[in-house]
Amino acid sequence: MTQNVGRRDTAAQNTAAAPEDALLTINAIEVMYGRLALVLRALSLSVPRQGVVALLGANGAGKTTTMKAVANLLRSERGEITRGSIHYDGSRIDTLDACDLAGRGLSLVMEGRHCFPTLSVEENLKVGAFSRRDGGRAIADSLELVYSYFPRLRERRNMATGFLSGGEQQMCAIGRALMARPRLILLDEPSMGLAPLLVEEIFVIIRELNRKEGMSFLLAEQNASVALRYATYGYLIESGRVVREGAPEVLMDDPEIRASYLGLDASAARMGDAALADRRRRWLS
């Protein structure tokens, strides 16, 4: 496998093993943009059934590219998977079209929400059910389910989503993904640009969806501390490859992750501002 194997912790290896049990498996994919820029290098990860997996990393590490690779959106951006494969629920999906995945139970909530701004909230949600063939009654039930998780969407149902706040748009985007009745939801930066309380609210709902509806999640997040609190497993990627993986507790104790991604210990000191470092310690202790 990759040269990173040696650095992975062994307990983690056991949890991630046996990919045939996994709902989603990414096998050593390599992604190129415009035949020049190598964005992902032999990246492998898997999402177990009923799992909430966090994909951590800094800006430009390749989180969004990974999500788009799974969702088959690369081709429309002149990127391609040049090596490796992606399997979902036992079958290979990287050869399909982007629109084929929703019907198979795999939904992506894109970075930056991407609601349809001129459509109302309810229209947005109904577009999410486009791939379903199980009739209007079942779709109406799903609409109710979404409104029960996000009561605020019901209040705003007839409003164009372009006028919603960032948090409401994030809810609408997640709700739209739910309308396809997914088994796996890919969430790209759900916390981006949201107030901390709202971030917490959304992660609580993710946990509920995971426990009550049995949905699995792959969460790409820069906000490592929130993501690790709700995840069952985590991967850290840097320059397009996995550099650490493991259970959340293991990752949270990793000194390098603490320093660079959780803003604890060394990073505050590295800023050279003693007062700031003190304040950080006080806040985070």
Partner: peptide
Amino acid sequence: GRALRAVADDTQAAQVAGVPL
């Protein structure tokens, strides 16, 4: 018609939602 407006608003998001372009 709704799917059509969705495509007009955001092509990628519409594909992800399962609308065949």
